[in-house]
Design a protein around this nucleic acid. Structure first.
Length: 496
RNA sequence: GCGCUGUUGGUCUAGUGGCUAGGACUCCAGCCUGCCACGCUGGGUGCCCGGGUUCAAAUCCCGGACAGCGCACCA
């Protein structure tokens, strides 16, 4: 039997503690995964790289950390309560049916976007019954894609946030006054979000609890084409799937899109993207994905078709990654204009505008939203190296900054003096700030294999010669070649 | 959510209505060992869950959970 890449990656992930189903000993829960000791390290490293690139390296981005439970009015204002739902009805036997879908199927009419009342009338007029058992259908209700809960003694209705973004808009005024930030500036957040997906799929690519890294860039609407990063990023090449290309493919009933390659500069100047800020946002992401070890031809931006985006969108561009099961969204880049702040102004009756040169303005928003779990899975697939003739085991070619450990330290033989020297080097490297693993169990070949399997880039072996001349060998994961160095130089050589 | 297929130690798997469910690798202990999971000995862990049929179920039936795929969904 030929195993799929997903099977292979998941097998290693389970065996080596990268990730596994949540509550596995109780049979698991669909759409929920835990990260194990190795996966958690990779995840932490990914977050650190992101934080470094998008927050620390820039002076204008502020990170907050918001709660995952938010009161119901937030989602009334954001539109999630009204739109983030599927109309459903239950028959007496308890079969739940998607009503809009059922109507479209039975009557061949367009039902999407109709209210529950309208749908109920159509059901009654056409005597539509439960497709499973034929019983009459009950009341049409909205099956929310948000997880709901109740808070406190008064059972106040609340929801688990379906995106991290809302906290940023809610705290916008606080953040701005506290930091005295001037436009343009960004507010970032890393955290968990929850969506009660109908059918989770493909390992951690579509799950019900997931993590996001998001930035809302707040920009003076008159300065959408004055991005401070433009010069730095203008030469970056973007693979772009245009709307025209998608229309062309749709005529051939195909979703096999080809992309064009344009620089950030051209994307802006030739108006492939709505503004300079969007062009730069996409360029930034290309550079970031290069750092993660994902090949350039497996990354593309798809200009979302109008029917895929909300009415207030000024243009959305999904960063898609080519997985073994096709292209999937990993980052959503949205030009949300002033919709969110305006909605919360209406909902909360609070003024969220800023004063600029004596005039009140509502900033426009560019929102890149990174899916952490999907990125991790993308990294796993794209850095996975199956076993072959020259190496009898599979391994991950993680970039050093993502690898769970910088190096593993191995005494070649089980002799006290070798172990002592190895332990000393281990402590020394740790003091230098390296994440290091120590392994003295089993034969040396197995230890190399174990280290490769979780993508540790270097293996330092202490052998009898070490005791004579204070040198040790460094084995490179990618080439399996060994070089000998002075112990005193090893820590520096392990630096990423 | 619907449909198809599947679920046997940590991983991969063999298997039949009936003796203590077999193997490989991993793992653990010990010995050996001067470098790529491939030296020796010993050891541990398993039939997804719940019902039913049967003298007897890991095996047959029903239901459920979970997974992969297709459809749908993914403001």
């Amino acid at each position: 039997m030929v195993k799929s890449l997903l099977d292979e990656v998941m097998t290693v992930s389970l065996r080596r503690g990268i990730l596994y189903p949540s509550a596995e000993i109780y049979g698991g829960l669909a759409g929920f995964y835990d990260f194990g000791p190795i996966g958690a390290r990779i995840r932490n490293n990914l977050i650190a790289l992101w934080r470094n690139r998008f927050i620390e390296r820039r002076d204008i981005v502020y990170e907050i950390s918001g709660n995952t439970i938010l009161p119901s009015p937030v989602f009334k204002a954001s539109g999630h309560l009204d739109h983030f739902t599927d109309p459903s009805a239950e028959c007496q036997k308890g079969h739940v049916s998607r009503i809009d879908q059922l109507i479209e199927e039975k009557l061949q009419i367009h039902a999407e976007g109709k209210s529950n009342k309208e749908l109920a009338e159509i059901i009654a007029q056409n005597k539509i019954r439960c497709p499973v058992c034929g019983d009459p259908l009950g009341e049409v209700k909205s099956f929310g894609l948000m997880f709901g809960t109740n808070v406190g003694g008064e059972r106040r209705q609340a929801f688990l946030r379906p995106e991290t973004a809302q906290n940023i808009f809610l705290g916008f005024k606080r953040v701005q006054t506290a930091t005295r930030a001037k436009l343009p500036f960004g507010v970032a957040q890393i955290g968990r979000s929850y969506r009660n997906e109908i059918s989770p799929r493909q390992s951690i690519v579509r799950v019900r609890e997931f993590s996001q890294m998001e930035i809302e860039y707040f920009i003076d609407p008159n300065q959408m084409n004055e991005c401070p990063f433009f010069e730095e990023l203008s030469g970056i090449k973007l693979n772009l799937v245009t709307q025209e290309e998608q229309e062309k493919a749709a005529k051939k009933k195909s979703t096999d899109y080809s992309s064009i390659q344009v620089t950030v500069k051209d994307a802006y100047e030739k108006k492939y993207v709505p503004n300079q800020w969007m062009a730069c946002t996409l360029g930034d992401e290309v550079v970031f994905f290069q750092e993660l070890g994902i090949p350039e031809n497996a990354v593309r931006f798809r200009h979302m078709r109008p029917e895929e985006t909300p009415h207030y969108s000024g243009g959305n561009f999904d960063l898609e990654i080519l997985f073994s099961f096709g292209w999937k969204e990993v980052i959503g880049n949205a030009y949300r204009q002033d919709h969110d702040l305006r909605s919360h102004m209406n909902g909360s009756k609070k003024d969220l505008s800023l004063e600029l040169e004596g005039k009140k303005i509502i900033p426009h928003v560019i929102e890149p939203s990174f899916g952490i779990d999907r990125m991790i899975y993308a990294i796993l697939e794209h850095t996975y190296r199956p076993k072959n003739k020259s190496r009898g085991w599979s391994w991950f070619q993680f970039p050093v900054n993502l690898a769970p450990y910088h190096a593993v330290i191995l005494p070649l033989l089980n002799r006290p003096e070798l172990e002592e020297a190895a332990r000393r080097l281990y402590q020394q490297c740790k003091l230098q700030g390296h994440s290091i693993l120590y392994d003295d169990r089993g034969r040396i070949g197995r230890r190399y294999a174990r280290a490769d399997e979780i993508g540790i880039p270097k293996a330092v072996t202490i052998d009898p010669q070490t005791l004579d001349d204070q040198t040790a060998t460094i084995r490179d994961r990618d080439t399996a070649q060994q070089t000998r160095h002075l112990l005193s130089e090893i820590s520096i050589l392990l630096k990423p």
